Simulated scan of single mutants.
Amino acid sequence: MPEPMAVPSPTAKPARVAVAAPLEEVSKPASKPVSKSLSANKPAPVAKTAVAPATSKPESEAAGSISGSVKLAAGQGQSVSAGEVSEGLVYFLPKAGNPKPKPGRFVINTRSKGFVPETLVVPQGSTVRFPNVDTIIHNVYSRSPGNSFDLGYYAPGKSPEYTFNTAGLAIVNCTVHHTMRANVVVLATPYYARPGKDGRYQIKDVPPGPGTLVFWHPRAVAKSIQANAPLAASATQTLVASKSPQMH
């Protein structure tokens, strides 16, 4: 059985709010004697108050991005198809101030004795439905730590679901068809991106500060580097395909 991928669980990020510097009062100059020729109802001079400009940058300016490229190289006895690198994932785990991602609802179909899609990235706490769109019975289960479940055997048209509450890699299989496999990557961070077929990626709106940048692909061993966001240069990484492509 494939080993689960450990994913660190970061903490929440406080909102950045621009705060104006305190007001500074300007001393009122000493009053000069008022000439008797002045009108008695003319108001006396009023001291002016100066407002210091805000020194903090708005959040839109403080946030940056992390971009670069990923390459999937063929390991010993392996081959890599063009564009296969797009099945991977790049995500950033801030050392501090990481907000909890908003859970959602997602779908993985059981079709033609396979899972579609084979790789799904979801925020921690999300629910995934597994509709049976085949004409045969399926069973969907996982033995991954923290996300172990068994939806049992179910007929075409049925759509059981499961909520993934633990961050990490959940490997999903089918008891009826042993070659069926899906990778559900459960993230405890909102900062991630899927690379394109050319391997390029961009993670937007990353808060400034140190953290861990992780490169993952279902056919390779994940790699991570320490990074200080936003990055002034591109972050590139090569992953070596040591596992065979998923078959169904």
Rank of each mutant, 00 (worst) to 15 (best):
P8V: 07
K13M: 11
R16I: 09
A18F: 01
V19M: 09
V19D: 06
A20M: 09
V26N: 09
S27N: 13
K28L: 12
P29K: 12
P29N: 11
P33C: 02
A40D: 03
V46A: 15
T49H: 09
A52I: 04
S56P: 15
E59D: 14
S65T: 08
S67R: 15
V70E: 03
L72V: 07
G75F: 06
G83C: 14
V85W: 01
V85R: 00
E87C: 01
L89M: 13
K95W: 01
G104H: 05
V107D: 02
T110R: 01
T110C: 14
R111V: 11
G114E: 09
V116C: 08
V116S: 14
P117S: 07
E118H: 14
T119K: 14
V122R: 02
G125E: 03
S126E: 06
F130R: 05
F130T: 01
V133Y: 05
T135S: 14
I137L: 08
S144V: 09
G146Q: 11
G146R: 10
P156S: 12
L169K: 09
M180E: 05
A182V: 12
N183M: 14
N183I: 03
V184P: 04
L187C: 10
A188S: 15
A193Y: 00
P195A: 02
Q202M: 12
P207I: 03
P208K: 12
F215D: 02
W216S: 09
W216D: 05
P230Y: 11
A232K: 15
S234C: 00
T236Q: 11
L239K: 01
S242C: 00
K243G: 12
K243Y: 11
P245Q: 06
